[in-house]
Write a protein that binds this DNA or RNA. Structure first.
Length: 297
DNA sequence: AATACGTGGAA
DNA sequence: TTTCCAAGTAT
């Protein structure tokens, strides 16, 4: 295909079909975009939407989140999953407040230096909040590129080629490039999906290499299914759920009751939560979310 | 370069 | 019921 045939198709399609997500509103700040990107890591849009609205009302600036009690932050994170994200977001907010004038940085290297912000999130913030021309590579984009450009059914493992492959699809104009990045993600999220792609609705169907190749099946390595039942992740989740649901510090017995199957595993997981900074132990031996005020009577 | 890290909805 | 998977990051 010609140099920017893809973006020529994608931009009108995006203008007509993009979902009306709250963090895409024109008045959303860099902070709003950053919060959305952290929340969306490995987490479906539908679950993020209500929580993002709450957070932006409650903590409209980085300094607001930085000043909050970590216990309140973790409770507000609720059951979104991967609560270390909340910890890192609060840490990032503190750096932004103290070192960047309470304004989310607009360049990739500075963003990358913040806790919890990696290759994807740094570029997503630069592109979506500040209109920068930089390739934004997430699982959706990697799948779209694998199919439309390389003619493969799946993306496989992340590779060094992903960034230049994606950048090659961006038009020269900075604003058009940023919108193309958003459109690539939107296409992967709503049309060029992992299971049951809706190719009849695809704006680049006639340009798609996978289509031209006859939609060959994936012949690469199959990803190992992630286990859940009985894992440390499940136990950590149970323990944290007890603390989120409690009004204040709890005794060791309350946490023991959360996982009776394997006391040694329970102890190991509690320790890892302490190491991660998701839980604290008070001088009297009770456990609490970080910074939880002592309700001792 | 694998692996750990939460959660819940859909197939 | 089981499996898959959803805008990744850190180690």
């Amino acid at each position: 295909m010609t140099a920017h045939a893809l973006s020529d198709r994608l931009l009108p399609w995006y203008a007509a079909h993009a979902r009306d997500l709250p963090w895409r509103a024109p008045d959303v700040t860099g902070w709003g975009v950053l919060v959305s990107e952290i929340m969306l890591q490995q987490t479906p849009v539908a679950r993020v939407d209500p929580l993002w609205r709450e957070w932006l009302v409650r903590w409209p600036r980085p300094s607001d989140l930085a000043a909050a009690s970590t216990a309140d932050v973790l409770r507000a994170w609720g059951r979104l999953g991967y609560p270390r994200r909340a910890l890192r977001l609060q840490a990032a907010a503190a750096v932004i407040a103290e070192e960047h004038g309470d304004v989310v940085p607009d360049d990739v290297p500075t963003l990358l230096a913040l806790p919890g912000i990696g290759a994807y999130t740094a570029r997503a913030v630069a592109a979506f909040a500040y209109g920068r021309r930089c390739p934004v590579v997430d699982t959706n984009v990697r799948r779209v590129v694998a199919r439309a450009v390389h003619g493969r059914a799946e993306a496989g493992d992340a590779a060094a080629r992903d960034l230049p492959d994606t950048e090659a699809l961006l038009p020269p104009d900075e604003d058009a490039a940023a919108r193309t990045s958003a459109a690539l993600m939107e296409l992967g999220a709503t049309v060029c999906v992992a299971r049951g792609p809706r190719c009849t609705d695809c704006p680049v169907l006639d340009l798609c290499a996978w289509q031209h190749a006859g939609r060959p099946a994936w012949d690469g390595p199959v990803r190992r299914a992630q286990r859940w039942a009985g894992t440390d992740r499940q136990v950590r989740g149970r323990l944290l759920d007890v603390l989120r649901g409690a009004p204040g510090p709890v005794g060791p017995d309350a946490l023991e009751a959360a996982w009776l199957t394997d006391p040694a595993q329970r102890a190991r997981c509690l320790d890892s939560l302490l190491v991660d900074g998701l839980v604290e132990q008070l001088a009297d031996g009770r456990f609490a979310l970080p910074g939880e005020s002592d309700d001792s009577s």
